[in-house]
Amino acid sequence: MDALEGVFAVAWPKGGGKLTPYLLLVPAISVVGLLVIGLVYIGDSSLRTLDRTTFLFSENYSLENYRRALSEGFTYTIIWRSLFGAFVVTIITLILAFPYAYMMVRTRSALVRKALLIALFLPFFIGQVVRAYGWLIILGNQGIINDALGLIGIEPLRLLFNYPAVIFGLVQYMLPFAVLMLAPALTAIPEEMEAAAGSLGADWFQTLLHVVLPMAKPGLIGSGIVVLTLTLTDFAMPAILGGGTQDFIANAIYDQFFRTSDQGFGSALTIILVATGSLVVGIALATFGAGTLALGKSENEVR
């Protein structure tokens, strides 16, 4: 230890006071730097067009890919489908997440709390593909629901490969994220507040509307933004539960890279997605603030 301290003292004469935090941040900043490098590559290739006769990319830059992307109706169909889906999923998810988080935080029974936490973490830790696989078994044409309906003589229903199936799968996927972001915000609300509102004559709905929801706002914003962006850019649920008929932006990008092999056009779509996503988050942040999204300490904790 003394030797280490010695090395440290030589390498860092003044105890390093001022520089320490910045040096501690270097590894994380470099790791995230990979993403920045990646974005630069995407930006670069989005400006190169594919020559259909030679299958080479142009040497010089042009905005042709963007012009093409923005002039084709298919781009808007897919952006609209993704955006609309993201809004619907966010609203349904928050409506389901709120009572879940509330009950988990407020229940007197440690057992109920533990059970709710496990029900939340299990799907969160299992991953999207396995969960989508479960839905395929449940909702498929020869799936459990249709088999059960068949037993009572009802014709099979087409429950998969449509928009509601994708929305449903996404809500299930997002629920754990939303609840986990919401719960700390609800914990921060003192229970006495609700009791006080009640004793002043508010019924439960008024208390919810005027006391709990406003105080839960940071959590609702944080989880809303997370759900919105994750849904907007999701790939697996539209791919598996939509069966190729309900593509979101991410699926269209994937196809450009791996089916059409038009890296330039795919890159342009990616940039458009990043821009759309940033715009949506930017609007949300500007309107509501960062909520519980801020990393590290809160403002007044700084020493």
């Binding site: 993403l35 996503g277 940033s278």
Partner: peptide, 18 residues
């Protein structure tokens, strides 16, 4: 440092792939 969450996963993935 929040860029990994704000950049869409497909964007991060494609960027890293390139």
């Amino acid at each position: 440092l929040l860029l990994p969450f704000t950049i869409p996963l497909i964007g991060s993935g494609i960027g890293l792939m390139l």
